[in-house]
Amino acid sequence: MEDKEITQEIISVSSAPHIRGEDSTQRIMFSVVIALIPALLGSVYFFGTRALWLTFLAVITAVATEWVIQKLRKVEVTVSDGSAIVTGILLAFNLPGGVPWWLPVIGSFFAIAIGKQAFGGLGFNPMNPALLGRAFLLASWPVHMTTGWTAPLYGTKSGISTVTEATPLAALKDAIKYLNVEDKAQQSAETIAAIKGSYGNLLWGKVGGCIGETSVIFILIGALYLLYKGYINYRIPLSYIGTVALFTWIFGGVEGYFSGDPVFHVLAGGLILGAFFMATDMVTSPSSIKGQWVFGIGCGVITVIIRLVGGYPEGVSYSILLMNLTTPLLDRYLKHKPFGS
């Protein structure tokens, strides 16, 4: 009997299941990187090689920061899991094209050092690091962050035929604001009438904005890939975009309820990028199925409030950051009922 007793070194008696699926953290993160490549190519096409340069700086800084901090903390270095690369790309994607080169560097550093490593690294960060980095930049260098817009190489900043000097959402916001101001009323009315003509530009990406957010088509190509791979699911994007569409339609117009332009609101700004690539960030969005619906709707409501009522033309980043904070509660209280109850 003794001779047949196999020693622990040779065989493993760890418990079931004895086989595991192929997905790993690394595989997921690199799939997200791949999914962001179409949007990156789009940003280079519309904003030139500067977009590539800014993205490169952000990624390098993110990876280097993670490496250094993990070395200093004397913990395992996990830069090979790809999550810092994702953070770097998303941070750059959320910057205007005209910012100085050191802005993505500082933003990425903040995102990784404060937004992620200070909490203990991947899996422990309560908020999306890239968005936190962006919020930090917006608070610290508001001029760069709000006026650094560059026009796309093949179009105007607004994409709206009557306006050239503002991003689409800002153009609309101004138009609504000045609708009753004598000398601007006519022009504002023309702008509002012209926004329907901008759909094509918005879809394609021929408008000003953050370098990675403008091209709906390119972003969606990447999003479809992630949906197909099962690394994101439809619940948050659908509920988020659906909520924005519904409420901007109801409240977003100038001729009373149900006169808004939901299509414009969905296509303009950072909603598509945010809904598919940032609100869906696994770590900071709920794992509860009900929680995911609530999260998406919450993001939508806050985005609409900021866009229609708040001081900024765009509210995607802040809405996601705010909802990130509710994630632990949503997971805890929107419990699942077991099958059969």
């Binding site: 997921i28 996990t78 969005s285 794992s287």
Partner: peptide, 20 residues
């Protein structure tokens, strides 16, 4: 590695539990 809160386990649990 640390839980990513990805919700995969939640999605596939045949008993509709939240294993994470």
């Amino acid at each position: 590695t640390a839980c990513l809160n990805c919700g995969k386990c939640v999605e596939i649990c045949p008993m509709n539990l939240m294993p994470n």
